[in-house]
């Protein structure tokens, strides 16, 4: 098995196990990039639980997640396995009230 298929499998496993996943730089407590920090704040404002993956801690995932969605930047928000977008899209959806609706579909 190549490293590339291996990391793609790990990503799919993460997305399958968690309804809301934020791939980010750093952690929710200590974001290492302004865009990732903003993404965390938006999710917290939506009062939603989410899993986070620190791409700075794993170079394979950092490249793998960009390939996975054909999306070249971090952060990336996934809901029910689907890419919602980066922090710009999250902010726009949040301001329209649509992100809250998307996330409401994941709560027990």
């Amino acid at each position: 098995m190549t490293a590339e298929t291996n990391v793609e499998e790990r990503i799919q496993e993460t997305l399958k196990s968690n309804p809301v996943v934020l791939y980010m730089k750093g952690t929710p407590q200590f974001p290492q990039c302004g865009f990732s920090g903003r993404a965390v704040q938006i999710l917290q404002a939506c009062d939603t639980e989410f899993a986070s993956v620190d791409v700075l801690a794993d170079q394979e995932v950092r490249e793998g997640i960009k390939r996975h969605a054909n999306w070249p930047t971090i952060p990336q928000l996934y809901v029910n396995g689907e890419l919602v977008g980066g922090s710009d899209i999250m902010m726009e959806l949040y301001q329209k009230g649509e992100l809250q609706q998307i996330l409401a579909g994941t709560k027990g």
Binding site: W71, P72, T73, L83, G85, I89
Partner: peptide, 27 residues
């Protein structure tokens, strides 16, 4: 969709997104 629109911009920028451009915020 917004997602598709942003993807089209990223495609237009291609590899420049990986190398030259550190952070691009867009509407």
């Amino acid at each position: 969709s917004m997602l598709e629109q942003h993807k089209m911009v990223y495609e237009a920028l291609g590899d420049k997104m990986k190398a030259e451009i550190h952070a691009l915020s867009m509407k």
